[in-house]
């Protein structure tokens, strides 16, 4: 059954005819054609499909499109400013190595945004908790956590990496 819903999509009011069985992920990727939201499992286990509905990060693969009626939907495409300026979280992911293959990144960034919008001074524990449902196979999460920490008011820890270099040509014991 099709019916009409209205919602705010990345800041713009929208009206749309949708089928009852559509997931929000389907609506975003197939109907609206925005492919930044990823499908990694389709069953709520990986977080690649994370979007923000009102203020909450949700797995769009489990969320029925019909339920978006009257709500605000933010996808990764809605994060940067109109002139292309990255959102501070995006910028931090770029600069701190939070992105490798990038497949988890849109979901990861949106989970982080939902967290920091609510808890600007999120601690490392808060951060880990907030992205626990977002799987990443590339980064080992370390630089993702760094990326989020750097924009939370909580402050940065010492770097994980300490270089110890032998002088050129000298090997030393």
């Amino acid at each position: 059954m099709a019916h009409e819903i209205s919602f705010i999509f990345n800041g713009n009011a929208m009206k749309m005819n949708i089928e009852d069985h559509w997931t929000l992920l389907h609506l975003i990727r197939e109907e609206l054609g925005y492919t930044g939201t990823k499908e990694g499992c389709g069953s709520g286990e990986c977080g690649a499909c994370t979007v923000i509905v009102d203020d909450k990060a949700v797995n769009s693969c489990l969320y029925l499109a019909a339920e978006i009626d009257g709500k605000q939907l933010t996808t990764i495409e809605g994060l940067a400013a109109a002139d292309g300026t990255l959102h501070p979280i995006q910028k931090s992911f770029v600069e701190k190595g939070g992105i490798q293959c990038g497949f988890c990144s849109p979901g990861m960034i949106l989970s982080a945004k939902a967290l920091l919008d609510k808890t600007p001074n999120a601690s490392e524990i808060d951060i880990k908790e907030a992205i626990a449902g977002n799987l990443c196979r590339c980064t080992g999460y370390v630089q993702i956590i760094d990326s989020i920490k750097a924009v939370s008011g909580y402050g940065e820890d010492e770097p994980h990496v300490v270089a110890f270099k032998t002088d050129e040509g000298e090997r030393g014991e």
Binding site: I127, K128, E129, I131, A132, G133, N134, L135, C136, R137, G140, Y141, V142, I144, I145, H160, V161, V162, A163, F164, K165, T166, E168, G169, R171
Partner: peptide
């Protein structure tokens, strides 16, 4: 079970440069 952010271990990665 691949590891999640909650399983991240406190890690240091010293780098040695031998050119």
């Amino acid at each position: 079970k691949i590891l999640t952010a909650k399983d991240v271990v406190p890690i240091k990665a010293p780098v040695l440069e031998t050119y």
